[in-house]
Design a protein around this nucleic acid. Structure first.
Lengths: 144, 144
DNA sequence: GGTAGTCGTAACGCTAATTGTTACGACAGA
DNA sequence: TCTGTCGTAACAATTAGCGTTACGACTACC
C-alpha cells in the first residue's frame, strides 16, 4: 500500500516529549527528538507543526525554545494524531471515471465508497481506543 | 497515505466478470474489463494475474481466451481480494533504526507493532465481512 | 498447418508522495 | 548584541503506482 511512517514518527515524538516533561524538563527540541528517532530535525519540525495545527503541542521560539504538550498523554488518542498527520481516504477510487454506460462502471464508485466509508469508521474507532498514555506504557514495558 | 486503487480495480474486475457470467457468457477479456474501468488492459491483466495466484480466477489462452471465476461471488470476500493485491503493513516503522540507547527509541517499535497489529486485525475482520456478492448488489442498486 | 485473438510479461516513462538535506530568515532570552 | 531554536522554502533521492508499447506464447478455428 506504500505505507508511510508519519503516524509512527509523530507518536514517537509525542511519547518522547511526554516522558521528557515527566522527568522535569520544560521543553524538548526537534534536535533531541530527531536523534531518538534517527531522522532529521526538519522532519520532526514538519510533523510537530501539523500536530500544533491540531492543538496537540505548542512551540516556543528563541533561545531555550522547543516543544511542549498542550494536553495530558492520556487525553491524546492515536486518532487525534492520525487526523493531524494523515489525509485522504484509505483506499482510492479509479484514476479516470469508469464507463458510465456500463452497469458496473456506473455503480462501482458509489458502492465502494459506501463500503469503504464503513470500514474506515471502524478503523478510526480502533485508533480512538488507544491513547498516547497507552503507547508510552507499552514503550516502557519493552524488555524490562 | 498515498492510497492506491488496486483493491477498487480488482473488485471492479471481479464484479464485472461475475455479472458477465450470469448473463450467460463464458469468459471475459481484459479488454472488456479495462474498457469498463477506464484503464489499460495490461493493468487489468496484472491485477487478475495476482487474483489468479490467489485462486480466485482462472485464465484461458488462445482464441476465445479470457477470464473466469473459480468461486461464487458470495464466497469471495474483500479480504481475499485485499490479500491478493496488497502487501505489507498499513503503517510503516521508522526508516532507520531508532536510537537504542534511548528508552523511547528502544521500545517504540515493539510497542507500535503490537498496537498496529491489533488494529490491522480489526481492519481485516471488517474486510472479511463484505463479499463480492454484497459489492455487486450495491453496484446494481445504484440509481435504480 | 496457418491464422487470428488473447494472455503473459518485460521494459520504459510519467506522476506523485515521502523522506532527507541544506539553507536562511525570524524570534526571544541572556 | 549574540546565540540557539523554530519556520519554512527549496531541492534531490527514492519508491510505488499507473499507463503504454511491444512481442512472444498459446490455442481455437479454418
Amino acid at each position: 500500500m506504500s505505507a508511510n511512517s508519519r503516524l509512527t514518527i509523530a507518536a514517537h515524538a509525542l511519547a518522547w516529549i511526554g516522558l521528557y516533561q515527566r522527568q522535569g524538563h520544560e521543553v524538548a527540541t526537534s534536535e533531541q527528538i530527531a536523534s531518538s528517532a534517527n531522522t532529521n530535525p526538519v522532519v520532526i519540525r514538519r510533523l510537530l507543526g501539523e500536530l500544533r495545527a491540531a492543538g496537540l503541542v505548542e512551540s516556543r521560539r528563541g533561545v531555550g525554545a522547543g516543544w511542549t504538550l498542550t494536553r495530558e498523554l492520556g487525553s491524546i488518542t492515536l486518532l487525534d494524531v492520525y487526523d493531524a498527520v494523515e489525509s485522504g481516504p484509505l483506499f482510492a477510487m479509479h484514476r479516470g471515471t469508469p464507463d458510465q454506460g456500463c452497469v458496473v462502471g456506473h455503480g462501482i464508485q458509489p458502492a465502494m465508497q459506501g463500503i469503504y466509508g464503513g470500514i474506515e469508521e471502524k478503523l478510526r474507532a480502533e485508533l480512538a481506543r488507544v491513547t498516547m498514555e497507552d503507547v508510552l506504557r507499552d514503550v516502557l514495558a519493552v524488555s524490562r
